[in-house]
Amino acid sequence: MNKSWRWLAVIIIIVAVLAPLIPQLIWSFTFRWYFPSLLPGVWGTQAWEYVFSKSSRVGEGLINSLNLALVTSLFSIAVGLPAARALALYEFRGKSLVEWLLMVPIIVPGIVVIMGIHILFIRYRLTGTFLGVMLIHLIPCIPYMILVMSGVFANYGTALEDTARTLGASSLQTFWYVTLPGILPGLLVATMFTFLISWSQYVTTFLIGGGRIITLPLVLFPFIGGANHAAAAAISLVFVAPALAVLIFISRSLATESSIMGGFGRL
């Protein structure tokens, strides 16, 4: 009984996860494919030729998306890590207010904020700049970094660091040799979240990037629901590849380190 349930679940997971990915894989190699054929009548590589051509701007979008996601993530770490530690390990007056302020972008719909800030960014000439787009991506990224890492810090505690310090290690040494290895799996997961949040942004990049900063979502968006499924599918696959690579890298920490995803339960 238990066993057949398991097998059913395994099959459902695999089929459901692959179901939306398989048609995209097939379509990306399609030239002619009309209803009701199960497979394309004529295969072709036109879509991939388009993706690799300069005029598709997929390459440019890929580089911009990667750069933005990496810089936004590094910035989120630099800014969010100390805050997460402070929230996890220190008690202070006004803590709940600060906690609320730092978490509020996760709960409060961002749409009004983005539309409100747009005019300010135009005035200060931040639209159409890398800096402007990165700043707007930070709004959802920093709270996620803090959310995950405060869970990790709280779980990790200070005992090991205290020991290291009593043994004569400097603050820098303590951080590098004791703290960092301890929080690293969690940090990787948190970075994956910030990376992917930035990686998936459409509305924010669209408004603030103003077409000057082309990222992959901007390249893909006009094709979804359009007639050229082959091109849409091929661009989608380019969009998926780096994200999947990131997942393979941290998959184990995601499933085994309970404190990391558990951080979301602390909201």
Partner: peptide, 21 residues
């Protein structure tokens, strides 16, 4: 592992896949 796969995939890609499906 398979269960985690959708996690990093952007919503736009998921939407495109659902449409084609």
């Amino acid at each position: 592992f398979m269960f985690q796969v959708p996690l990093p995939i952007p919503h736009l890609v998921a939407a495109n896949g659902i449409v084609l499906l």
